[in-house]
């Protein structure tokens, strides 16, 4: 069956159908991420002196690097589309390949960040003390923690200094956890937002791989149709970049 209006505009809307489809989808995405951003605002409003909103838990240089990677991928994505519009297929393959590489780099960096958090622990003692650090040993009776050393003020480079190993009796512990969603409202919303965003990056990458390899055969028969398809995946990709533009400051910097 021939799908109508893939290249030419539908008379009543003035647009080819896939463009209408992707914008309706992006509208629903705005509401999805909007709801989660609202949840972030709500949790932050709820922070008080007893449970302050944390700062400096994420690696700012790594987050900045990933922002550069995603912005670069947006540039290569729009250039991939422009190359098709100019009928430069070899150039399209290069730019789309670079976009996919950027997506892969972003996900690898995110995996590194997640892994780092999963190996970082916080311990709340019954006497009110709170310790963070790396877990050296976990026995039924006690934990041995390599405690973080914190300096005054905010730092661009993450603090990696550790004190001498400290053994803590489990009877003295009120609660302990690694940096996962259950650790705090901050990490709950951090993992929810970046996890959902990461899934979008992964989905966009898979679609782009399709248009880079098997899907690009369409160029031989209908190059304008391929350009429109790539424009649709590009619109999704730029939206993913746009979400990150807000995620980066609210999670890493503020």
């Amino acid at each position: 069956m021939e799908i109508p209006y893939t290249v030419t505009a539908r008379p009543d809307t003035g647009l080819w159908n896939a463009k209408i489809g992707i914008w309706l989808f992006l509208a629903s995405e705005i509401m999805l991420f909007g709801g989660l951003f609202s949840a972030y605002v709500f949790l932050r409003i709820g922070a008080d002196a007893a449970n302050p909103w944390p700062h400096g838990l994420l690696n700012v240089p790594v987050g900045t690097f990933n922002t550069f990677v995603l912005i670069s991928s947006s540039m290569t994505m729009v250039m991939a589309w422009a190359s098709l519009k100019m009928r430069k297929f070899a150039q399209y393959r290069i730019y789309m390949g670079l976009t996919i590489l950027c997506a892969l780099a972003f996900l690898c960096v995110k995996a590194y960040e997640y892994n780092d958090k999963f190996h970082h622990y916080g311990v709340w003692l019954k006497n009110g003390e709170f310790i963070t650090g790396h877990l050296e040993e976990n026995t039924p009776e006690s934990l041995t923690i390599l405690p973080d050393i914190h300096h005054e003020g905010r730092h661009f480079w993450p603090e990696t200094e550790h004190g001498a190993p400290r053994e803590i009796k489990k009877a003295d512990i009120r609660r302990w956890s690694n940096f996962t969603p259950k650790f705090s409202p901050f990490f709950a919303i951090y993992f929810t937002l970046t996890g959902l965003h990461g899934l979008h990056v992964f989905g966009g990458m898979v679609v782009n791989i399709y248009f880079w390899l098997p899907g690009s055969k369409l160029y031989r028969t209908n190059p304008e149709h391929l350009a429109n398809r790539v424009e649709v995946s590009g619109l999704f990709w730029h939206f993913v970049d746009l979400v990150w533009i807000f995620l980066f400051p609210v999670l890493y910097l503020l």
Partner: peptide, 29 residues
């Protein structure tokens, strides 16, 4: 990048409605 500076009115209409609802959503906080 998303070409919204020169897009059809149909798309703007979608987005205006979305922005109104998104503002409503944020207002709930």
């Amino acid at each position: 990048f998303m070409h919204l500076s020169a897009e059809r009115w149909t798309i703007y209409r979608f987005l205006i409605i979305t922005v109104v609802f998104a503002i409503g959503l944020f207002s709930l906080t």
